[in-house]
Design a protein around this nucleic acid. Structure first.
Lengths: 132, 132, 132, 132
DNA sequence: GTGGTCTAGACCACT
DNA sequence: GTGGTCTAGACCACG
């Protein structure tokens, strides 16, 4: 499972992790029954406190997406509901809008933004490949 | 001065305000000597608590971007340093990357993303016109 | 860390706290790397609102004197600059002058003032000892 | 009437003015029946907003120390009560203590403080003479 | 436990 | 009208 968090971001770390795990579930990259990395494993990998990871897992359990089995690990149990996915998507669009607003304010031209977008997508692909 | 904040966002309100004011300074939309809306005024306009706006202004004063004059108002004093602008820009790119990563995970195609980007920019243009 | 604030004073509480912390940094009583009492702790100790202490710490962070580490505490990072110390000192002298002016106006003789000064310093010594 | 205010002080301007006027009354430098400078006159002299002076005069009227006669000016009506003088004096001592505490923290020796005190008093005398 | 954000509201000080 | 201080309390995020 490949996650990437930006520590200095305005978006809280726990939120970044939760969103990305949820996205992986939604996209089918991880499926019901799959085992997630252990709390301490993920914490180490992301260089984040274990409690932070733990709380993300707990939250996602509360939402029915994951299940923590004592002594065995944490597993995917469900897919994201359509409603949740739609909400997630709406939020992303809002955030995109915010960023674009500021980027244009800082003088980035539409072309540059589209380029960046392309890079970001390629970077994503590359990263995904690297994780294979 | 046109600001737009998303109240439900993971990004704290105060951060959104601060970033946008900083961006307006950087872009030259507001220039040294210009008077910002008063704390109360902006708070009312954004439907946010006065203290929230006050703390944003104070923080930006601490960074040398604004100056608060007792009984007179809050004024722009400096432009953003190049270093700060670069940092700001880097952060935006990082966040863009994050969003793109999640958006592609949620099944948005590159075409859809470029479309969204276009919309976001048009929205921006419209908003700017509305502020005229 | 020993602080003493006068609640009824014309000098705002937050200013008193900030000045005293800055002085402790300047005098070397607290050194870079040292951990300050937590916001809540100091607030309780001084019988002051947490937000008041928080804002003081934030301000001093903005000046580069302190650093707040999420979940860990607040730490001293720098010494006061010479310029800041000089300014601080000048201000103290000015305020001393103001007080003396009024004291003499109220009929305190020079001798009485020198006595008071002695007492104040002894009180200080005692307090310092009490803090050991 | 000679007043001296420090604009950068932590003590509010209005408080400085009020205290000094009160002190002048207490010391007998200005006596019942004496006319104070007009609001605008004093405001100009101190380079302060007229409203600030006005509110000081009003406050001192409320305390029975002054009386504002429409179209004629502001006059001293009473002396300060003993209780008020005692309170004033206590406060001064407290503030002295605060300043001494910080001054010693900044490395001023007792000798230096006594010297400063001497200077402050001489400065005061000189100033008073200059005002003659 | 730590810091951080936000609200609501009172009261003060300066123009 | 403006900014500035302080309080009380809720809730979030990080270690």
């Amino acid at each position: 499972m490949y996650l990437r968090i930006e520590k200095g971001s305005a978006v809280p770390i726990s939120r970044q992790i939760a969103d990305q795990v949820a996205t992986l579930c939604a996209s089918g990259s991880i499926k019901p029954g799959d085992r997630l990395p252990s709390v301490r494993e993920l914490a180490r990998e992301l260089a984040v406190n274990q409690n932070t990871v733990l709380r993300v897992y707990e939250r996602l359990c509360g939402e029915g997406l994951l299940e923590m089995r004592h002594g065995q690990g944490t597993f995917v149990t469900g897919r994201m509901s359509k409603a949740r996915m739609a909400a997630h998507r709406t939020r992303l669009v809002d955030e995109l809008r915010q960023i674009v607003r500021q980027a244009t304010g800082l003088g980035l031209s539409p072309e540059e933004l589209h380029e960046l977008l392309g890079e970001a997508m390629n970077g994503e692909v590359t990263a995904a490949r690297a994780a294979d």
